[in-house]
Amino acid sequence: LRTVEMKKGPTDSLGISIAGGVGSPLGDVPIFIAMMHPTGVAAQTQKLRVGDRIVTICGTSTEGMTHTQAVNLLKNASGSIEMQV
Rank of each mutant, 00 (worst) to 15 (best):
V85T: 09
P38M: 03
T66V: 02
L48H: 06
G21T: 01
H37N: 14
S78D: 11
H67G: 11
I33R: 03
R2V: 14
S24K: 02
H37Y: 09
V55D: 07
I57L: 10
G21H: 04
S17Y: 13
G79I: 01
L14E: 02
V22G: 03
E63K: 12
T60Q: 15
R53P: 07
Q44N: 11
G79S: 08
K75R: 13
V29K: 08
S24F: 05
M6R: 01
L73I: 13
A19C: 09
M83T: 03
M65P: 01
P25H: 10
L48T: 01
I57E: 07
G79V: 04
Q84S: 10
Q84I: 10
T45Y: 05
L26A: 11
D28Y: 01
V85I: 12
G51Y: 02
Q46W: 02
D12E: 15
G9I: 04
T3N: 07
H67F: 08
M6C: 06
A70P: 01
V85E: 00
T66M: 04
A43F: 10
A70W: 00
I54E: 03
S78T: 14
G15R: 02
L74Q: 04
N72M: 10
R2G: 04
P30I: 00
V55I: 12
L14R: 03
I57Q: 03
G15M: 01
S17H: 13
A19D: 11
Q44M: 12
A70S: 04
T11W: 12
P10F: 09
T60W: 09
F32A: 06
D28E: 07
S78G: 12
L48G: 01
G79Q: 07
A77M: 10
A19N: 12
D28M: 05
S80A: 11
T68S: 13
P25S: 11
K7L: 12
D28A: 04
Q69L: 01
D52H: 04
A77S: 12
V50F: 00
Q44F: 00
V50I: 12
L26P: 00
E63D: 14
S80T: 15
S17E: 15
I54M: 04
G64C: 06
R2N: 06
G79W: 01
L26Y: 12
M65L: 11
L74M: 08
A19L: 08
G21L: 01
D12C: 08
K75T: 13
N76Y: 08
L14W: 15
I54W: 01
K8I: 15
G27A: 03
T3W: 02
R53E: 15
V4I: 13
M35F: 15
T66L: 06
P25R: 08
V50C: 09
G59L: 03
G79A: 06
N72W: 08
T39Y: 11
T3S: 09
R53L: 13
I54N: 03
A43Q: 08
S17T: 15
S17D: 15
V29W: 05
K8S: 08
T39R: 13
V41Q: 09
L74N: 07
L1H: 07
L14A: 01
Q44C: 09
E82I: 14
I57T: 00
T56H: 05
H37Q: 13
I81V: 13
I57V: 08
P10N: 11
Q46N: 15
F32E: 11
C58S: 10
R2D: 01
S61Y: 03
I57C: 08
V29I: 12
V71N: 15
Q44S: 11
G15D: 06
A34V: 07
G23A: 07
I16N: 00
P10Q: 08
G21I: 01
T11P: 06
M35Y: 15
N76W: 06
G20N: 05
Q84A: 08
M36F: 01
G51K: 01
D28Q: 06
G27R: 03
R49C: 12
K47I: 07
L14C: 06
T3H: 09
T56D: 08
P10A: 12
P38T: 07
L74I: 13
L26Q: 14
M83R: 04
A34L: 07
E5R: 14
G40D: 01
I16H: 04
I57D: 00
G59M: 03
H67A: 15
V29L: 09
C58G: 13
L74W: 04
I81E: 04
T62S: 00
D12I: 00
T39E: 15
I31L: 14
N76A: 12
P30F: 07
T60H: 15
M36T: 04
V22F: 11
I18E: 02
D12W: 04
T3D: 06
G59E: 04
D28W: 07
N72I: 05
S78N: 14
M65H: 04
V29N: 01
Q69P: 01
T56V: 02
G21S: 04
T39I: 03
G51N: 06
I18Y: 04
E82N: 13
L48N: 01
P38C: 07
G59W: 04
S13L: 13
M6G: 02
K47D: 12
T11M: 14
G27E: 04
E63T: 12
L1K: 07
K8P: 11
A70C: 13
